[in-house]
């Protein structure tokens, strides 16, 4: 069990950062540059872990990133990596989709608590943008997930994966997939929904006062968390993975889709993205729900 969890975390950490490195690399090619090496994000994270932290705004400031990190770790540990296997399942026997959805909002909450304690206006601005966007993101995602739960008659992720033996949910419920995919793009924090940490507007937003080890923790948890989200989408709509190669291929395809969308579209403002998320994906999700 312990070894299982350790391997799961290491896999999530490495793939999260590898994908992030690829994201930077592919975006660089789109800009007509060479871009950094694929392992650049590892270098950044290790360097930041060896850096000093010279700021202090009370204990809540330090607790914020830790709450975020625990949210990300718990999310990834409650999602089984492989189809009907005994290994790489973490705690997923003890919880279901609802628990995962609950842990997914723990991160933004921890972030808000940590950022709220330092009083930097840019941080507060980033958090307000983030939480407002979250309202927009959750609506279509939850409707789509509820649709899936009704369709498969269970909230257990492993059973939802098993129920897709013949047809993947992406084929059986395409409308739900489209709605969930759009909010997944937002959860990934890439364009067009990257208004939270916009460097030129709010000076990297919530992370504005974090430096050194706490920034490293924030970056690592976001890498792990983005892998968890890829994993959840694969499990819910692409029938899960039979082995590790399958897992890598499926998450990579989803990730590439997110990268290309991110590179093509510009940034929406907060109100535009909430407007968009409430109008288009939510309506798609509701229509999809009717067909379930």
């Amino acid at each position: 069990m312990f070894l299982d969890i350790l391997i799961m975390l290491i896999l999530a950490y490495s793939f999260g950062f590898l994908y992030y490195g690829l994201y930077r690399n592919i975006s660089a090619r789109v800009h007509g540059r060479f871009g950094p090496s694929i392992a650049q994000s590892f270098y950044d994270s290790i360097k930041l872990f060896t850096k000093d932290t010279s700021t202090s705004f009370g204990w809540m400031f330090y607790a914020g990133p830790i709450i975020m990190a625990s949210g990300a770790l718990m999310t990834v540990l409650f999602i089984p990596y492989l189809n009907h296997g005994d290994s790489l399942i973490g705690f997923s026997e003890y919880g279901n989709l609802i628990v995962v959805l609950y842990f997914m909002v723990l991160g933004p909450l921890g972030n808000a608590l940590g950022v709220g304690s330092h009083g930097n206006p840019f941080g507060a601005m980033g958090i307000i943008r983030g939480l407002t966007r979250l309202i927009g993101l959750e609506m279509p995602f939850y409707i789509a997930v509820i649709g899936l739960m009704i369709a498969s008659g269970t909230a257990d992720i492993a059973e939802i994966m098993a129920s897709q033996k013949e047809t993947y949910n992406i084929v059986a419920h395409p409308l739900l997939f489209i709605a969930a995919f759009i909010s997944f793009l937002g959860f990934m924090g890439k364009s067009p929904f990257d208004v939270v940490g916009a460097p030129a507007e709010v000076y990297s937003g919530p992370a504005v006062e974090f430096g050194g080890k706490f920034l490293a923790l924030t970056l690592s948890q976001s890498a792990i968390f983005s892998f968890a989200k890829l994993l959840l989408m694969v499990n819910l709509f692409l029938g899960g993975a039979d082995n590790l190669v399958d897992l890598v291929v499926k998450t990579f395809i989803l990730f590439l889709a997110a990268v290309f969308v991110g590179n093509v579209y510009g940034r929406l403002t907060t109100s535009q993205s909430v407007d968009f998320l409430f109008k288009i994906p939510t309506v798609i999700a509701i229509v999809g729900l009717m067909f379930v």
């Binding site: 930077r24 660089a28 800009h31 007509g32 540059r33 060479f34 871009g35 950094p36 090496s37 650049q40 270098y43 950044d44 360097k47 850096k51 700021t55 460097p199 030129a200 000076y203 990297s204 992370a207 504005v208 006062e209 974090f210 430096g211 920034l215």
Partner: peptide, 22 residues
């Protein structure tokens, strides 16, 4: 920092705040 000379290939990136900077 942009496409013409692209220093990101050496691992150098711009950040927005001194707290994160080396």
């Amino acid at each position: 920092f942009t496409s013409r000379y692209d220093i990101e290939r050496l691992g150098v990136v711009g950040v927005a705040t001194p707290r994160q900077a080396d």
